[in-house]
Structure formats: structure tokens, C-alpha cells
Amino acid sequence: MSRATTAGVPPPTIPVRTLKCIVLLGACLLVLVPFLGIVSTSLASREAVTGAGGFLLIPDGVHWDAYTAVLSGGVVTRALMVSIGVTLVGTAVSLAFTSMLAYTLSARTGTFGQRPMLMLVLLALLFGPGMIPSYLVVRELGLTDNYLALILPGAVAAFNVIIVRSFFLGLPAELLDSARIDGASEFAIFRKIVLPLSKAALAVIGLFYAVGYWNSFFNALLYINDNAMWPLQLVLRSYVVDGASLGSGELSSMGDVFPPQQSIQMAILVISIVPILIVYPFLQKHFAKGVLTGAVKG
């Protein structure tokens, strides 16, 4: 992309270049300043928060009070555990089912019923079932107020099945054939040859799913009525978005003095963002690549 230099056109004039930088810098600030504010408010002391009237950009030091209040038991701690659990179990379940289905669909031996199954997966991309029928199915299965309701309905995403399948199709057929000649069962081939060869691809899909589970909000809203079972996103909604206040009932007993409400809210927000930040470098690298392959192939 060094065309500006190779093309022999004079580089843009200084004012134009400055203007571009200012616009892009502005865009970056629009993203970064809110984060700065959130982190600062969560770390500021009580006096600083009240003094600033609620939120501040530069903290007066690092005070972990809000985090200890939130993380030493109580609603938020429990929700955090639920979210972590659902994300881990969900990702494992999703990966297992997605890869098995994708392998079946990619088998060159032409298993019975492979075409219709592939059609069903493709159709699922096009036509969603609708909110109410989905809700009723989960309810008729008796899964309301059950963590399975947060995992199973979205466990297999048709789009990911297609992606994994096309990756499997790219594996050398000779390898699978030679194993077959040696008498390996299909499942052994899948487990011992296909899976080890696709670690990288599955890791990416796994991240896809994990971010989805971590962020999923609406399934929990629909299916989890018992607020002792809420995942973090629902807690975030009721205490930060809707502004319900957290008192001694919701936090663990830590004496009478609570950190200011804003600090607590922002601490919850930070806790829900940090996991995303941790995996973000991988996401960016692989997702960008994935989107590009999709774009080029059409």
C-alpha cells in the first residue's frame, strides 16, 4: 500500500495531512475517553468522586475500594462466576458440536443424508425461527431458570459450521484416506487427525463463541427469571443501565461505609470489559483475517 510514493504524485500538502490526522485522532479519542473516564471513576476515592459530582477523567490515586466491595461476595461476584462458567462450558459445548457437525458435512465419502443436512444448515442462515417459537420451545423443555438455556439455544451457529466445514475440506484428502486404509474409524480419524490439524481454526471459532457467550444478554433476559442466577450482563443492566442502587443487601458486609455508587457501577463495567480486552489482540488478528478471506472469496 505504498502507492502514494510509487505513484509519483506529490504527497499531500501539510495542512491536508494534519487535517487527516486530526480527524482520525478525534475518532480514537471518542473511543478512548469514555474508557478512561470509566476506569478513573472506578479507581477514585470517595472524596474525589463526590467533589467531581460523579465522574472524573483523572483519578486522585488508585483506590481499590469499589472492586473489593463488588468482588468480595454478593450479587456481582456470583454473576461473574455465572458468566465465566457459562462462557467456558458454552464454548466447549459449541466447539464440540460445531466441529462434529462440520466434519460430518465435510466427509468426502458422502454419508447418507449429507446433502439434505447441508441444505438445512444453509437454510438456517437465511431464515431465523423467530423469538416467540424459540422461547416456547425452551419453556416446553423446562429449561427456564436453567443455565442450559443460556448455552443450548445458541450452541451451534450455522455460520460457524460453514466456516469450519470449509476449513476441513481444505485438509489433504490423502491423509484421511490413508488412515481409513489403516482401518481407523471415522471418529478416530476425526479425533486423531482432523482435530489436531485444525487447532488454530478451532481456536478462532472458539473465541468467536466465547465472546458471544460472554456478551449474551437477551437469552438470559428471556429465560432466567431468578436473579440469583443472573449472568454479569443482566447485573450490569439493572445496576448500571437502569441505575438500581447496590446496598448492603447486594454487596457483602463490609461495614457501613460503601464506596460511592458511581465507582461501584464503573467497577462492574470495567470487570465486564476486561475479559474482552484480554482476548482482543487475538480477536483482532484472526477476525480481521477471517473477514478478509470471506470478502475475497465472495
Binding site: 425461527p129 423467530g130 416467540i132 420451545v137 450452541a155
Partner: peptide, 17 residues
């Protein structure tokens, strides 16, 4: 596959309601 069927296609049938 069963899961996709259960949570995608059973609900589509559920549209009868």
C-alpha cells in the same frame, strides 16, 4: 445437528401458533 434441529427447526414448526 440435533441441537440445531431442536433449537432452530423445532421453533420454525412452532410458528404454527
Amino acid at each position: 445437528m440435533a441441537l440445531l434441529l431442536l433449537f432452530h427447526y423445532v421453533p420454525i414448526l412452532g410458528n404454527v401458533i
